[in-house]
Design a protein around this nucleic acid. Structure first.
Lengths: 129, 129
DNA sequence: ACTTGACCTTCCAGTTAGTGGAAGCCCCAT
DNA sequence: ATGGGGCTTCCACTAACTGGAAGGTCAAGT
């Protein structure tokens, strides 16, 4: 299977797959013409990567998860640790964004949004405290 | 005022301030010895930048906001537009993260987290659908 | 006067996770 | 044999810094 077909199957751009090979996440064989030859196994791995990335795991998380995934003896506790750590990060990020949203929506609410120059948003950003 | 003091006053790393000068956000004068000489005005601008960045505005947003901030004739509607657009982006991001969090916390909940290899998290990431 | 240490300068490289594009093979159909 | 699409590598670029090297400057202490 060439890279185009593999990309189709895994739902990733070909460029991304080449990048994943660069950084050692997949190691497809090569045809005699130099084309990458993807096995079902590779496509499966790529699909796994796509899903994990969509869940916001970093590439390094993915590398770890992939190793655990390929290790039939791994303990589910190890995976759970990575997932929980990631869950914490997500929750922190949500909280940060919610606080930004609250501040910003207060500012937008208080801003007349008309032609006059007085603007609470800029005032708030610029106030010397 | 040297860069260290300005950094202190604005609550930004000196490196970041040099970077902001590089990209044209601030233009401090120079002493005869080549040191940057920050005026109160510059520090005020840097503080503004720090706050806007903390609210998640991109550098380009900041450039626009700064221009509006320095333009005493600007319409508050222009500022409001930028802020509202940004607010939308934040809300989208929050929704994405919440969906990730929900998926992930389901997975973590279902994972025994013990010594056995069976792991719903990896299963879910790797299932051939 | 000299030295030490803190602070300043510039410049280069690296970070994350790719994306865009150029130059050049390869393969298949007409 | 020629045209179009797919494939290859390599280089540069993105955002917003951060780290570090090599070297100049300043103020204090001896």
């Amino acid at each position: 299977m060439n890279i185009g077909e593999a990309a189709q199957a895994a739902g990733l751009p070909a460029k991304t797959i080449r990048y994943y090979e660069d950084i050692g996440l997949v190691k497809p064989l090569r045809d005699t013409n130099g084309y990458r030859a993807f096995q079902d196994h590779d496509v499966h791995k790529l699909t796994f990567l796509g899903r994990a990335r969509a869940l916001g795991f970093t590439i390094e998380d993915c590398r770890n998860l992939l190793a655990l995934w390929e290790d039939t003896e791994r303990a589910s506790a190890d995976v759970r640790e990575i997932a929980k750590e990631h869950l914490n990060q997500i929750e922190t990020k949500i909280a940060d964004l919610e606080s930004m949203r609250d501040t910003l929506s207060d500012l937008v609410r208080d801003c007349a949004g008309d032609d006059r120059p007085n603007c609470p948003i800029l005032n708030s950003l610029g106030d010397v405290r």
